[in-house]
Design a protein around this nucleic acid. Structure first.
Lengths: 214, 214
DNA sequence: CTTAAAAACCCTGAATTCAGGGAGTTTTTC
DNA sequence: GAAAAACTCCCTGAATTCAGGGTTTTTAAG
């Protein structure tokens, strides 16, 4: 008697779920027991069906309501023995990094081939992690990037000023808002431009937005 | 003898293509003749296989290289009798609007059900257009919005300049890049500030990022 | 208590942006 | 073919930013 692994899929893109299903249904050892379109439903299902051993969760990152990141965190906290494979279209280094830090067992891009998908699933079920070479390189980049750029730790005041700059306030206005001299604000702007290695307001604004400061 | 419709699919997310295929292969009258992962390949295929009548193109919007919008435009210009159904995960009113203006025959979200997909395909093949009520409401919103706020339609040149501004280039640099006088770029910057109702570089940059121009 | 970092402030001068105009040419649209 | 929109270029002058130097005071850490 062969071992059959139980799989849950969470993705709000139904056609994608169909794609997964059509691939997995040809595999005798892989059994899709449930599919949902958001994170909450997965947790609900797991709680109700505690007697059923689930081996693998395949989830998207972006979903309405609880997303893949939060879902994975909750599952690793509350349940045991459930591996997680994240499949997403986005290839955002920072997000993937937080996933690996949260013990996700694998990550695939949605443009992966069937072959790679099955390889990832089998590898994860065997107890290993799976991150494609492509994803690995993105991860490495994100790591080195964070060493480079976030070496620049901004002080609270600098963040305040940066936010106001990004909100289109002039130096004088920021000075008025923070009850400081405009010279002070000019110093901050100058330091920010140096620290963040940008050239002008546009660069500061981009940094602020990219780091979700506004 | 039944009529069989020939379909081409363009989407870089292979698993999604598999999902589509698994749905469509159960339909006797729908025949997938080719799948590609970008727009260029579709055009290449169509040019080589001119004798083969293609009835429907199913395409994503976001693809590496030529995207769905450009692809549809090219197809409507160069080939006849090919309907287009766009399936995308994004629900950006402005983009959908440009699609309808470019004679796309239908639009579906990637979280649509099988049922709706087949309904859309059949309706389009029968000569009608298909836009789900959900999409229609987004469209209406985009229209009314565009009357309110985004009456600001930027020209191609304006977009180019805006992009370069947001990338921290100075006026002189942009002038050099576009082979224009710096006075011209100054005019563009001024007009952009007026049109977009912002105050400075920071505002322009924010607009550019919020509208995904960089 | 000492030292370092952060926060606040000041100065000069060049470069750039911003705001307000005008004006000619080409391209699109009706 | 006329009208509108887009594209290009130019001018002036004020405001602001940018780049390079500073100083002093407060706060945090060893």
């Amino acid at each position: 008697m062969k071992t059959v692994y139980n799989i849950i899929i969470a993705d709000d893109h139904k056609m994608f779920v169909d794609g997964l299903r059509s691939i997995l249904e040809h595999e005798d050892d892989l059994n899709i027991v449930h599919t949902t379109s958001n994170g909450e439903e997965v947790l609900k299902y797991l709680k109700i069906n505690q007697n059923e051993q689930i081996d693998l969760l395949i989830t998207d990152i972006n979903m309405p309501g609880m997303d893949g990141i939060a879902l994975n965190k909750n599952i690793k906290k509350e349940f045991f023995g459930i591996k997680t494979l994240v499949i997403s279209m986005l290839e955002d280094g920072a997000k993937i990094k937080t996933l690996t830090e949260n013990e996700v067992n694998g990550y695939l891009s949605k443009n992966a081939e069937q072959k790679e998908l099955l390889k990832a699933i089998r590898q994860i079920l065997a107890g290993e992690n799976y991150f494609s070479t492509h994803i690995q390189s993105i991860l490495v980049q994100a790591m080195t990037n964070s060493r480079k750029t976030s070496e620049v730790r901004l002080t609270q005041r600098e963040k305040e000023v940066l936010q106001l700059i990004a909100k289109e306030h002039t130096t004088q206005e920021i000075a008025d808002i923070l009850f400081l001299s405009k010279h002070t604000i000019e110093s901050y702007r100058k330091n920010l431009i140096n620290k963040l290695e940008v050239r002008n307001l546009a660069g500061l604004t981009r940094y602020a937005i990219e780091h979700k400061m506004i």
